[in-house]
Structures are given as C-alpha cells and as structure tokens.
Write a protein that binds this DNA or RNA. Structure first.
Lengths: 162, 162
DNA sequence: ATCGCAGGTTGCATGATGCAACCCACACTG
DNA sequence: CAGTGTGGGTTGCATCATGCAACCTGCGAT
C-alpha cells in the first residue's frame, strides 16, 4: 500500500522525513554534496535502480532541494546541483555520518572531513549557538503542543541526550 | 522487491540509514526520546500500522538502539527505552527538526528546545569541537577512499555547506 | 461472566522497489 | 553512411513492505 505521508503531523521531523525520508534520497543528496552530480555516475556509485533514481531526482527537484541544470548543449546533458535548501541538509548528512562512524561497527571512518585552512580533521558537534555549549551537556526540554506528558501522567521529562 | 541493504557500501551515512532509514523508524525514536515509550501510545500518536510498529521496535531492539524493559508484572507490560546507541541519535533528530523548521513551510516551529537551567530557547548549530567554529563558515573537504573526483576529472571540490 | 486494556499477530490488497530490457538523440569512427 | 558508444532516461514484470481491519492472549476489575 501507499506509504503514508507524514505531512499532516505538525512535527518538523515528520515534515523533513516526508521530503528526504524515502529510501536512497539522502544517499543521493550525499553523493551530490560530495561532487557526484550526473545521472550515470550516481547510479553506478549507489547501485540504485535507474527508475528509482529518476523518481528521487525529480522529486527532489520538485521539492526545491536540487536544481537540474544543463552543462552542455548538443546533445543536452544535465547535472544536479544543490539549492540553498539542499545545502541546508548538510548537518543531517554529517550527523548521520558521525553516528555511523561511532556505532555501526565499521573498523574506521571511511571518510573524514578536514578544514582546508588548517588541514585538521574536523570533529563536528552540536552546540547551542549562544552559549557554545554542547547540547549533551545541558538539561534540555522540549516544549510545544505536540509534546505532552505520556499516558502514565508523568511530568514532562528532560531529553536523554547522552 | 526487497529493499536493498546499504550495508556493503563502505559509507557511514549508508550504514546509519541501513539501521534508521526505514520509514517510521526515526519518528519512533523521536517519540521515545520525547518520553512516549509504550506501544499503544506510540501507535496512537503516529498513526502507524500496528504490525509495522512491532517490526520497527523489534528491529531497533535487535540493533541495540532500544531496550525493551518490563515496567510491571502480572500482567507483564513493557516500555521501550533508548540505549546509549539510541541516545546518540539525538543530533540526527535535532538537525532534522531544524531543517523542517526552516524549510518545510510550517508557519512556526511546533516544538522548541529549551535549556532548563537558563530557560532560554536553544539554537543548535554544528561546530568543529576544537575551534568551535560553525562548519558552514569553514572550507570543508571530504577525504577518503569512497570520495573520488567525479567523471569530469575535476579536482576534489569543497563541500557546499551554505 | 464478561468487559476492557496492553501488547501484540494474522490476512489481504496494493504500492514501491529491483532488475533487465528497451529507447532516443547525438557524436564519432571507418 | 553504417555501425558503435554515451548520456539520460522509460517500460514491464515480479516481489516485498506497508496500510488496514480483524483477531488473539493474559490479566484485573465490575
């Protein structure tokens, strides 16, 4: 049956996953972010079915995450580039990469991010912009209509971040 | 046909998505992180099919993301709690939430994160741990076997992060 | 005795995916 | 100008995952 849309869920996580939650979608974005921008290159690297790739690319273009631009005429050939909305996905890709590095059992990280100025390997961490403190060191609470005490009637709890 | 496993891809993003990339999985983790921990509560909040929820929960337990713990006997009743591996997913959930807040067209964020000490709304940003500088302000390059110059023969490019 | 609840399991219909084959316009080679 | 290669797809078919509703089981309460 059709996969249910999350879009009526009044939850930003659900809104995001409604756009980038399909299988392959974030891997396609990852490849394009890393400089693989053409249909055949993406298809070969990922091993994704060609019709599925067509679907993902057009859906991402429809959602404004990618732009399809011709890089030559006669014959017309295309590449896919990130829009600002697409570039804003980088924190998601990077945190997914980190979690995979730490927890998925690969012997060592297949890819490192380096700062081109210092040449150093980067260690990305999520902090509060104002205080600069890592979120995992704070007592963080979620507030909003969507988040309610659960059925036990317990009071709202802190998020377990570490 | 069966969805292809990404696990032989030598890419941490793929490894992560192999575990948390199924539809509903991250929404289930989100709910549990926000304190919804019981089968029926999750099922009602998400509107997920009950058999699908069963599958997602057992898969997450098998992967060590969740722990199924009894909170009473006679009759035995269970709740699902995050393991350390599951708690480590919080940066992914939070960055997904941010992207949804910014780009998915909701009038305003349905949920805010606040610091319980200061009471202030948190604005999470991904920085390099050592320098404290936001990644989007750096020239970042990905290095590793998986990342190669693309078919145009162009040299390795910086990641477009902003 | 039966009602309800928590936490599932089962059966069926359909849509999404994988896979292979095909297509089309153009360019290059002989 | 016939044949071959390349980029970027489309089409058909088989199968798996999902949605949905119904059913089940153990227990406590009425």
């Amino acid at each position: 049956m059709k996969r249910k849309s999350y879009s009526d869920m009044n939850c930003s996580v659900a809104q995001s996953l409604d756009i980038v939650g399909d299988p392959w979608t974030l891997l396609v974005v990852r490849d394009i972010m890393f400089g693989i921008r053409r249909f055949n290159d993406i298809q070969e690297r990922l091993g994704i079915a060609r019709n599925t790739l067509t679907d993902r690319l057009t859906t991402l273009v429809d959602h404004g995450v990618l732009a399809k631009v011709a890089y030559q005429d006669n014959p017309e050939r295309f590449e896919y580039r990130l829009t600002p909305k697409g570039r804003a996905l980088s924190p998601i890709i990077i945190t997914l990469m980190q979690w995979g590095d730490q927890w998925s059992g690969l012997p060592e990280p297949p890819v490192h991010l380096i700062d081109r100025n210092s040449g150093r390997i980067l260690d990305p961490v999520l902090v509060d912009r104002q205080s600069g403190r890592p979120l995992e060191q704070l007592r963080v609470q979620a507030i909003g209509e969507t988040v309610r005490p659960n059925s036990t009637g317990s009071q709202r709890e802190d998020l377990e971040l570490r």
